[in-house]
């Protein structure tokens, strides 16, 4: 049976790293089991907000967990107002995480708030001796770009408004690249993942995608967080959040 962390954990740092985007560092117990692509549940314990918020693991440094989140609603707003020294109940690590086995040259493709989980992945892949190129796309201001530069061989940036890097979609840079990748790892909005699934099919480069859906339990009990895989619905929190792009039914 999986070992979970489920305790009040102390916030060490909680700071804005871009407009409406925050990095929170939390002191946890044992994080040895945590892998890139897994997530935690953040319990707000705020009465009317019943459900915990799923947030991906961005980085791990011994007992410190880092999450990077965007303020999009009430819960993330509450998180953004918390101060170092305060405690938050955290459950994790949850989900399957990225499978790291094949390939020497890999492309990581992230869009917007899908970029954070790729950071721990980049570190892990590099530590496994792989050559990592990161393709990071944003609407406007990039996040975590400098940190990717410290681990990845190359970092390509695209912004939709052209304020930094290539103007347009990040997939355009990937498509025009001459690199022969053994595998692609991706996280981001659905249109990006769908485009990469098509790219993966056309080029026969395997691709792992990290998906999201509204969750209640995070543990596999409510069967709320599903995605269509083949003919059936499977739980993102348990069988995912990472799936092979070619098994997901993208027509739903």
């Amino acid at each position: 049976m999986k070992e979970f962390f489920f305790e009040h954990a102390e916030i060490i740092e909680n700071k804005s790293i871009s407009r409406e985007i925050f990095s929170m560092k939390i002191r946890m117990g044992d994080l040895k089991n945590a892998r890139a692509g897994q997530f935690v549940m953040v319990y707000l314990e705020k009465g009317e907000m019943l459900l915990p918020r799923p947030i991906s693991i961005c980085d791990i440094d011994s007992n410190t967990l880092e999450i990077v989140y965007q303020v999009v609603g009430k819960g993330t707003k509450v998180m953004s107002e918390m101060l170092p020294g305060q405690c938050l109940k955290i459950l994790g690590p949850l989900g399957n995480g990225f499978k790291i086995e094949t390939g020497q040259r890999v492309a990581l493709v992230g869009g917007g708030i899908g970029v954070p989980p790729l950071f721990l992945l980049a570190k892990t892949l590099v530590a496994n001796g792989m050559k990592v190129n990161a393709y990071l796309g944003f609407r406007t201001a990039p996040i975590l770009a400098e940190r990717f530069q410290t681990v990845a061989e190359n970092v390509f940036i695209a912004t939709e408004d052209g304020s930094v890097g290539h103007r347009g979609f990040i997939t355009e840079i990937l498509q025009s690249s001459n690199e022969k990748y053994d595998e692609i790892f991706a996280c981001g909005p659905l249109p990006l993942l769908r485009a990469l699934a098509e790219f993966s099919q056309a080029t026969e480069i395997p691709c792992q995608v990290c998906m999201e859906e509204r969750m209640a339990c995070g543990l596999g009990t409510c069967v709320g967080c599903v995605v269509r895989v083949g003919e059936s619905y499977v739980r993102i929190c348990t069988e995912g959040p990472v799936f092979s792009a070619n098994e997901v039914n993208w027509n739903e």
Partner: peptide
Amino acid sequence: WQGNPPPRIAETHGGMLNAV
């Protein structure tokens, strides 16, 4: 039974909706 298409969960004030 295959269940309903997602999203299946929505939080509401002091409650939640499910359509699993």
